[in-house]
Design a protein around this nucleic acid. Structure first.
Length: 271
DNA sequence: AGCTCACCCTGCGAGC
DNA sequence: TGCTCGCAGGGTGAGC
């Protein structure tokens, strides 16, 4: 499940094959996603020509001359561009058939993903309007992180995973970035100095960039738009490595629960 | 406002 | 073999 690197990898893999294609037919097999797919979705998308394949946080934005399909992959979703007549398997919920016969197919076993149809500025959509700046933007810097953490008693890891404060960072990359920055995931956000905020922002940017370069992480079922797996999971410093030795200090990596999520960190070098 | 928790859903591996 | 349990990459909304 996709964090920003997986969504961005999907976007990049889909873009060349989709831009310029016209949608000639849409089939929805199951509307029951995180939010139900609106009844008019098929009619709006049919006949539209795809102009852009964008991304905002973990949302994919397929822009057309009729409107924008805003797609979230949730925990288990994938968006695949497959050849004509590719057999439909369980959990293939939506197909958009394109004018060359190929199919843009949404697959999501857990149905935590979503598909919205937007007409107008996507930035005004309620789900996007309150999102924090992209990690790659210059606005996301140490001063920003320092400012938004003042007065917050929650653990710094929770801040990284809160989309209103930081976008694109999920459970894997929060652990990874905190390890790279040498910061204990459990410390209250407000206790971070400006210097540590700068280090953490730098670590987030570098972690996400490295993961994108690796094609994302494929822990179980993530694949990009062409069906390829990522390999960042083989480079992870702490995620999924509890009980193993820290590559930096030799300490033992620990697994703890924060909220309902697993956090991996090294008590030896994350203070 | 900030924070914690329950919950949405399916599949898989571990343990009995 | 079959069961039950816990866990999985996300995010919202209720209730304090």
């Amino acid at each position: 499940m996709p964090e920003l690197p997986e969504v961005e990898t999907t976007r990049r893999s889909l873009e060349p094959g989709l831009v310029g294609r016209r949608v000639v037919g849409v089939t929805v097999r199951d509307r029951r996603l995180r939010w139900p797919i609106v009844p008019e979705f098929e009619a709006r998308l049919t006949g539209a020509t795809i102009a852009t394949v964008g991304r905002r946080a973990k949302y994919l934005l397929v822009g057309t001359d009729h409107g924008i399909a805003m797609i979230h992959l949730g925990m288990s979703g994938s968006l695949l561009h497959v050849p004509a007549d590719t057999p439909v398997v369980k959990h293939d919920h939506v197909d958009a058939v394109l004018d060359d016969g190929s199919i843009l197919r949404f697959h999501d076993p857990r149905r935590f993903g979503s598909i919205h149809w937007i007409e107008g500025d996507p930035a005004d959509h309620p789900l996007l309007a309150a999102l924090a700046p992209e990690p790659s933007e210059t606005e996301f810097d140490g001063a920003y992180l320092h400012r938004i953490t003042r007065g917050r008693a929650v653990a710094i890891k929770h801040v990284l995973m809160n989309g209103q404060l930081v976008t694109g960072v999920g459970n894997i990359y929060a652990s990874e970035a905190l390890h790279l920055a040498g910061i204990n995931p459990k410390i209250p956000a407000r206790r971070l100095s400006m210097g540590r905020c700068e280090r953490l922002v730098d670590a987030v940017k570098r972690t996400l960039a490295r993961a994108i370069a690796a094609g994302g992480s494929s822990l179980r079922d993530y694949v990009d738009g062409a069906g390829n797996r990522g390999h960042f999971q083989t480079e992870s410093a702490v995620y999924g490595r509890d009980g193993e030795a820290c590559l930096r200090c030799g300490g033992t990596i620990r697994l703890v629960r924060q909220g309902q999520r697993s956090t991996y960190y090294c008590p030896g070098c994350q203070k």
